[in-house]
Measured scan of single mutants.
Amino acid sequence: ATNIVGKVKWYNSTKNAGFIEQDNGGKDVFVHKSAVDAAGLHSLEEGQDVIFDLEEKQGKAYAVNLRIK
């Protein structure tokens, strides 16, 4: 899926990971530091509006192509 709108639920820069809550009510999506880095960002803030694509690896959904809304 592409161009999904959501809000950062939480992001821990020590653990280099967090979750994004989908505005469409879907399951929360894992976001890794690699996606944050690829977006040219240093970190994510709780409640921040984002747009992202979903990629599945080994049955788990990940946020990729992250951008700030």
Rank of each mutant, 00 (worst) to 15 (best):
Y62N: 07
T2E: 08
K33H: 08
G18P: 01
V31C: 01
N3F: 05
F19H: 04
E45K: 14
N24A: 10
S43T: 14
I51G: 02
G26N: 09
V36M: 09
A17F: 15
K27I: 09
E45R: 13
A1W: 11
K9T: 03
T14D: 11
H32G: 11
I68P: 07
T14M: 13
E56L: 13
N12F: 06
G59C: 07
A1D: 09
V64R: 05
F52R: 00
Q22R: 14
L66M: 03
T2L: 13
Q58P: 06
H32F: 07
G47C: 08
A63G: 04
I4H: 07
S43Y: 13
F52H: 00
K33V: 08
V50D: 00
N16Y: 09
D37R: 14
G59Q: 05
Y11H: 03
K9R: 10
K27Y: 08
S34G: 08
D49Q: 15
D53W: 04
K7A: 04
T14E: 12
K15W: 14
V64P: 02
V8N: 01
N65T: 02
L66S: 00
K57I: 11
D53N: 05
H32V: 07
V5N: 13
R67M: 05
G47H: 05
K60H: 09
A1M: 13
L44K: 00
N24I: 08
E21H: 11
S13I: 12
K69D: 09
A39I: 07
G40H: 07
E45T: 14
V29D: 00
L66C: 02
N65F: 03
K60Y: 11
A39V: 06
A61I: 15
Y62M: 10
F30R: 06
N16E: 11
G18D: 01
F30W: 07
L66F: 00
L41N: 02
N16G: 15
Y62D: 03
G40E: 05
I51W: 08
Q22K: 08
V64Q: 04
D53Y: 02
V50H: 00
I51S: 04
N3H: 07
V50E: 00
L66K: 00
E56S: 10
Y62E: 07
G6A: 02
D23A: 15
G18Y: 07
Q58L: 12
S43G: 13
W10I: 04
V31G: 01
D37N: 14
H32P: 07
I68S: 07
E21K: 15
E45I: 14
E45M: 13
L41H: 06
A38H: 08
A17I: 15
A1S: 12
E45Q: 13
A17C: 15
V31H: 01
V50Y: 03
F52M: 02
A38G: 06
I68Y: 06
G47R: 05
K33G: 11
E55M: 14
V36Y: 02
F19S: 06
L44N: 00
S43W: 12
N24R: 10
E46A: 15
E46H: 14
S34R: 10
A63Q: 01
Q22D: 05
Q48H: 05
K57Y: 13
F52A: 01
Q48R: 05
K9M: 04
A61H: 13
K33D: 02
N16I: 04
V31F: 12
N65M: 02
V31M: 04
E45G: 08
W10K: 04
V36H: 01
K27R: 12
N16D: 07
R67H: 06
K60N: 08
L41A: 06
A38K: 11
V64E: 04
K60P: 03
K33R: 11
S43R: 12
F30Y: 11
I51M: 11
G18M: 05
L54M: 11
A38V: 07
N65K: 06
A39E: 02
I4Q: 10
A61G: 09
D28T: 08
V8W: 06
V31P: 00
E46L: 12
G40I: 03
G26K: 11
K60T: 07
D37F: 13
W10D: 02
A35W: 04
H42G: 12
Q58N: 15
G6C: 01
A35E: 08
T14H: 13
K15I: 14
E21R: 14
